[in-house]
Design a binder for these strands. Structure first.
Length: 102
DNA sequence: CAAGTGACAATAA
DNA sequence: TTTATTGCCACTT
């Protein structure tokens, strides 16, 4: 385990393959915690997206972050679509693209 | 040190 | 089904 919780979050997020998405709750569960908020804070504290694809992390409902994330509410959706993720009514199709820890 | 805030989630109304 | 409230835990002021 990483010394910092944030590092651990980044590591998990980087583990998500293209075309897949993870939820804050899922990552929290992997890190043996129940606080999804911590995960969210970690991604927000993330230095830059080049290192950690935060755009692959969504709400448990398949909803994206409040909007001001990633330089545009549409930005994330476009990125995910480019990776092969499908959207339903503006939400990520978790039933199809939810990443499962191996 | 205490209170407030927040890229969340679950439950109640 | 949507909206409101509560809980969890860390970070900031």
């Amino acid at each position: 385990m990483a010394e910092n919780f944030f590092e651990c979050v980044y590591a998990v997020v980087r583990r998500i393959p293209p075309g897949k998405v993870a939820t804050y709750k899922l990552i929290a569960d992997i890190l043996d915690t129940r606080d999804a908020r911590r995960v969210g804070h970690a991604l927000h504290a993330n230095p830059d997206g080049s290192r950690t694809p935060c755009h692959r992390v969504v709400f448990s409902d398949g909803r994206l972050a409040p909007g001001y994330a990633f330089g545009g509410p549409n930005g994330q959706r476009r990125k995910l679509e480019l990776e092969g993720v499908t959207f339903i009514d503006g939400n990520v199709d978790l039933s199809t693209h939810l990443w499962q820890p191996t």
